[in-house]
Design a protein around this nucleic acid. Structure first.
Lengths: 211, 211
DNA sequence: GGTGTATGCTTACGACGTAAGCTAGCCTGG
DNA sequence: CCAGGCTAGCTTACGTCGTAAGCATACACC
């Protein structure tokens, strides 16, 4: 009756599944052990503590984001990277918050960052220009995704929630909020990631050309 | 020997102080009570639970962000709002993460949002245009600030941390990361919030003009 | 076959959020 | 003036969390 042995890899993969299914707050060491058919304390043989688990799953997930290889034109590469990151972050709704809340430089992160900076430098950006571009693009990626995940507008039960909210709002006091929420409810419109993305890419291109 | 009585207001203000001083994880009900000279359970007479406290302090802090009044040109208003928000979020380093991680529509949030949408609508944006502009601007505000708070580059001991990191990095494998970190260390350059902000404002203006 | 080393288990501790019920003082109506 | 109840704060207790410390077991290798 030997079970397949644990490993850092297996622990982290199980942790990702747990977080995906029940939210990050459902990821506890005890539950994680349970999921692997093991007591909580046994995990500590393969992982140094819970922060290590969190860092690990973040780095795992970052590995799923693909950045086009060297040779790809910078704008195309940056757009593809942003769209891929956005998709990955939506697939693991806990990830964006974790990335932003811990200082982590794992292998996945480093690879991802190096590819990003590489495409920008190859595209003609100065070091400082690449830094600015990177920051601006990432701000949009993470900021937008976090808003998207936090706001209930896009969800299925959105209209119900929104209706409740509108109901309690004073249309005289907050006319614009009421107007916008009503419009969102009527039109079913969801926020558009690529609007801001393309706007930023346009701006960067202009900056690069005249820079 | 009467002490001044508690109130929701006093509880929330103490909570903000606690979070500002020791980080959000140091804000516990027991410590909060202690700070107010009271047992933890006494707080529940003025606050329904810890989530209520978190929602409350977020809303309090949002009230500090000022949005220029009706009549202010949209671009000026949006820039002032973004800069103010950025300052407030840096002054309360726990706030950005809390705002992004909880769905909260308190009075402070609603007022802030209504003013923002108002200046955009008055400036000539369509409802959908205002939505896009709002989302894009807020993505930058929150995304940028979160990165800024998470990355150790700007901190005092930054160079030490960065030096350690660079030391462990393989310059052959990740040349661009090494290049950029080295540059940041040498130049002491910090990330620039207004670069992306003005880039976005430019883009929005162009979008608005060509309609 | 004995021994060392990994792997997993048991027990335990302190911190957390909060449910439930108690107490002591104030406010009010008679 | 006093009885009633209301209220702010207190006490105790429960279940959950991360994890420190030490124990048991089973495999690898001489």
């Amino acid at each position: 009756m030997r079970r397949t042995p644990l490993s850092r890899e297996r622990v982290l993969r199980a942790a990702v599944v747990l977080a995906d299914q029940g939210g990050i707050e459902s990821l506890t060491m005890r539950r994680l052990g349970q999921e692997l058919g093991v007591e909580a304390m046994s995990l500590y043989k393969h992982v140094s503590n819970k922060d290590d688990v969190l860092d690990g799953i973040v780095d795992l997930v970052l590995g799923d984001i693909d950045v086009p290889p060297s040779g790809t034109p910078w704008r195309e590469a940056m757009r593809a990277r942003a769209v891929s990151a956005h998709e990955v972050l939506l697939a693991h709704p806990w990830a964006a918050l974790q990335i932003m809340s811990r200082f982590n430089i794992g292998l996945g992160m480093t690879r991802y960052l190096d590819a990003t900076l590489g495409r920008l430098r190859e595209g003609g950006f100065s070091i400082e220009g690449a830094l600015d571009a990177w920051h601006t693009l990432d701000s949009h990626i993470y900021g937008f995704t976090l808003q998207e995940l936090g706001l209930p507008f896009a969800a299925d039960e959105a209209s119900q929630v929104s209706a409740d909210v509108v109901g309690t709002l004073d249309a005289e006091q907050f006319p614009h909020v009421v107007e916008v929420i009503s419009h969102v409810m009527r039109s079913g419109r969801v926020e558009d990631f690529t609007f801001g993305l393309d706007l930023i890419l346009d701006g960067l291109q202009r900056e690069l050309n005249q820079g």
